[in-house]
């Protein structure tokens, strides 16, 4: 991505008066930095961007990014974002959620937003554990993972968000790593620029509760798709990469151009819904149906 010659803002312009409450070394700091950097690079203003947050350590970022923000319920930020986009498609709409949020309570919303190709950028902090509730298993925890809620080890196989998004006809499927801010920034920039639903699953080490999937572990396990010559227009290849266990590929798995949900609503082809006058376009004609 080429940066504008003179960015309108600096990343610090997207800070608020409050500082994050995450543990020192938390992967969330990297995602926070990448998000702000991406907004700068994209030339966005605090007022033309809405970030919708779920509940969890990730959602607590709601207090720390200077844009319009909606801090909703656990598992439900995606439909809120879809509503915002339908109401005003002139806005940049980004969702910040966690793995419990997005792949546990909110799994259904996620897949339906993917298949609808709602034009939102979905950044999922995936630390494979429940941090804010102090260390229970998550939908992405590996099979056998021992936690406070699964002392004998998780029985289920982990959710594979990449393959799910691909299976639901996703048009932008990517994965980043919170420890590589520059790479993640680039993914967020591309995700926001993509017209349609962009999934950016982010490996985010939880330094307090996850002693297995640590920074060191991710640094060893991750490989960059772009360095492997992966073709992001090849869905079959993307699916193959999504199921790899030997290494964890990060980068853009798949991208395809398809009209976004709001682009298929003729009512708002000319003007965003929020700019329509409140007076009904027609009324007598509707009443006549009952005569």
């Amino acid at each position: 991505m080429s940066e504008p010659e003179q960015p309108k803002h600096r990343a610090s312009d997207f800070n608020t008066s409050t500082f994050p409450t995450w543990c020192p070394g938390c992967g969330d700091f990297g995602i926070w930095a990448a998000l702000k950097n991406a907004l700068v690079e994209l030339g966005r203003e605090p007022h033309d961007t809405v970030v919708v947050y779920g509940i969890g350590c990730s959602g607590n970022m709601a207090n720390n990014v200077n844009t319009y923000a909606f801090h909703g319920l656990h598992g439900r930020p995606v439909p809120v974002a879809e509503g915002i986009k339908m109401a005003n498609h002139g806005l940049t709409v980004i969702v910040i959620a966690g793995d419990g949020d997005g792949y546990g309570e909110g799994l259904g919303h996620f897949l339906h937003a993917v298949r609808g190709n709602a034009d939102i950028t979905y950044i999922v902090h995936n630390n494979q554990v429940y941090g804010l509730t102090t260390g229970q298993t998550s939908p992405t925890s590996d099979k056998g993972y021992k936690s406070k809620s699964t002392p004998h080890g998780v029985i289920e196989e982990p959710i594979n968000p990449i393959s799910l998004a691909l299976g639901a006809s996703g048009t932008f499927v990517a994965r980043g790593y919170a420890g590589d801010i520059k790479h993640l920034t680039s993914l967020i920039v591309q995700g926001v620029q993509h017209k349609g639903f962009s999934l950016i699953d982010v490996f985010q080490p939880c330094v307090t509760f996850n002693k297995i999937n640590t920074h060191l572990w991710f640094q060893k396990m991750t490989v960059k798709l772009e360095e492997m010559g992966h073709d992001p227009s090849n869905r079959e290849a993307a699916i193959q990469q999504a199921f790899r266990r030997d290494q964890l590929p990060i980068g853009l798995y798949y991208k395809e151009d398809r009209p976004a949900y709001h682009e298929q609503l003729s009512q708002i082809a000319e003007t965003p819904l929020v700019e329509h006058p409140l007076e009904p376009l027609t009324f007598d004609e509707l009443q006549k149906e009952f005569m």
Binding site: V50, V52, F70, G72, L73, R76, V78, P79, V80, A81, E82, G83, I84, K85, M86, A87, N88, L91, G108, H109, H112, L265, S266, Q267, I268, L273, V274, H276, P280, L281, T282, E285, L286
Partner: peptide
């Protein structure tokens, strides 16, 4: 919908329904 200039969404479930509407309302509609 097109006659009245209204966006109507049959969402995947009622939880989505109310959250979408809340989002739209937050955005001023």
């Amino acid at each position: 919908d097109t006659k009245a200039g209204i966006v109507v969404k049959h969402a995947e479930d009622e939880i989505s329904v109310i959250n979408m509407a809340l989002g739209a309302s937050f955005a001023g509609v």
